[in-house]
């Protein structure tokens, strides 16, 4: 799969602070890559270096081998949504888009088309100062789409969007990928992105933690299992459990957690001992938990990033609840 974006050994130092530290990853065409990490992990700085807004201290960030500044018609190749506040408040939405379209030598018809695409046609003549944060996000997206770029870079695009807006954004991003476009979208919340992304690039403290597919991440999450059982017969159940080699904990007067147990094992076990059950929950670590463990575990240990297939330096969530 050809790559749309190549980040190689990218670094940014602010004095002694290494905001981005020897970061390397690629973004393939036709897929949505989630660029994930806690706030302050260097995501925005990385994206801004990629777009030529911030000077790299070292390494390269290129689009098909060319730096942003070297692209012939950058706006036709790359669309970027950075902060949602970069508008002159007294300028009308339509005039803002026109100024970009004219400067980038794009047909003015694109202004109406992109306004339509993001659902801002009705407020085209309104001053941006009157816009809500969600509307500004949409206008920023419209700006990025003016040149119909094959690469989209979105920095925390879900910020300020209401649930419908987030749903709309997901559909929009998936549609862009279906056109064969590459989408790199950053977020500090994996849960926000887990229905949207194909691949994940996880960073923490400016370093790469893991680049893999979402499916692989889900597998890692799925392996951390346990059973949560609510029963009126706690004493009989604990007696029965003590006879088999499993670890269990009582988490409430009527609730036990059995580590590592599966429904396939526990169902027949409960039937055999004729124990009444009120509730039977198969617990898996969520993607968000894996994400948190990856980024936090990384902060505690491990210099240098992990590549696909290596095991991560973290404790499986649920293993020590």
């Amino acid at each position: 799969m050809p790559s749309a974006i190549e980040i190689h050994g990218l670094s940014k130092h602010f004095g002694p602070v290494r905001a981005v530290d020897d970061l390397t990853f690629e973004v393939p065409e036709g897929r949505v890559t989630g660029f994930l990490g806690p706030n302050g992990s260097g995501k925005t700085t990385t994206l801004r270096m990629l777009l030529g807004l911030v000077r790299a201290s070292g390494g390269t960030a290129t689009f098909g081998g060319k730096r942003y500044v070297e692209l012939d018609h950058p706006v036709r190749h790359v669309g970027a949504v950075l902060e949602a506040t970069s508008f002159h408040p007294s300028r009308r939405a339509e005039d803002h888009l026109k100024s970009v379209a004219i400067g980038a030598k794009l047909p003015l018809s694109r202004v109406g088309e992109t306004l339509d695409l993001v659902g801002l046609t009705d407020v085209a003549r309104r001053r941006v100062g009157k816009f809500s944060l969600g509307m500004r996000q949409r206008l920023q997206l419209a700006t990025a789409l003016l040149g119909d770029p094959e690469i989209l870079i979105l920095d925390e695009p879900a910020n300020g969007l209401d649930p419908q807006g987030i749903q709309w954004l997901r559909t929009f991003i998936r549609y862009q990928a279906s056109l064969g476009h590459a989408v790199l979208v950053s977020s500090h919340l994996l849960s926000e992105m887990e229905e949207t992304v194909d691949d994940v690039v996880i960073v923490s403290q400016g370093k790469l933690v893991l680049q893999t597919t979402l499916a692989d991440l889900a597998t890692r999450a799925g392996t951390s299992t346990g059973m949560r059982i609510r029963t009126p017969e706690v004493p009989r159940l604990t007696t029965a459990l003590d006879a088999v080699p499993v670890a269990w904990r009582q988490v409430a007067p009527d609730t036990l957690v059995i580590d590592g147990a599966t429904p396939e094992w526990f169902g027949p076990f409960a039937a055999e001992h004729r124990i009444v059950l009120y509730e039977l929950v198969h617990e898996r670590g969520s993607l968000e938990e894996v994400f948190l463990a990856l980024t936090q575990g990384f902060e505690a240990a491990a210099p240098g990033g992990l590549q696909d297939g290596q095991s991560a330096p973290f404790h499986m969530p649920g293993a020590d609840q």
Binding site: L53, V75, E83, T85, S86
Partner: peptide, 17 residues
């Protein structure tokens, strides 16, 4: 004004030089 309202970000994306 471009720096005050951060429109310079968009301007530099259109005109990287």
């Amino acid at each position: 004004v471009e720096f005050r309202h951060k429109t310079v970000t968009t301007s530099f994306l259109v005109t990287p030089r």
